[in-house]
């Protein structure tokens, strides 16, 4: 189990224990964290699981693949630390990872 922290736009925090191998998006959906829509169910095809990775974690989490970078074009208010949470696989190294959610997935 790995701890992942979600911070909603409102500031509400959710700390969740996630099985390694699951994605950050799956962790949010299975635990009813509001603010992640995941319309396509994790196919990297909709950009509705957009998160901002905490600055301290950007280096550790690895780079997004081309497909994900392309899909981020369909998200809003994309920043340097923007990722699609369906493409972040949870592993021990990510224990304590914090992601912030945008005001709205669209």
């Amino acid at each position: 189990m790995t701890k992942i922290n979600f911070i909603e736009f409102s500031g509400a925090e959710h700390s969740i224990d996630v099985d390694n191998g699951n994605t950050v998006m799956e962790a949010a959906i299975q635990n009813n964290v509001p603010g992640i829509d995941a319309d396509c169910g994790g196919a990297c095809a909709c950009a509705t699981c957009h998160v901002y990775v905490d600055k301290d974690w950007v280096g550790k989490i690895g780079e997004a693949e081309e497909m994900e970078k392309d899909m981020l074009d369909f998200a809003f208010d994309v920043e340097e630390n923007s990722r699609l949470s369906c493409q972040i696989k949870v592993s021990e190294e990510l224990d304590g990872l914090t992601v912030r959610l945008p005001e709205k997935q669209f």
């Binding site: 319309d39 909709c46 950009a47 074009d73 369909f74 809003f76 669209f106």
Partner: peptide
């Protein structure tokens, strides 16, 4: 003219 893809 914004083109951000489709949503359901």
């Amino acid at each position: 003219l914004p083109f951000f893809g489709l949503t359901m």
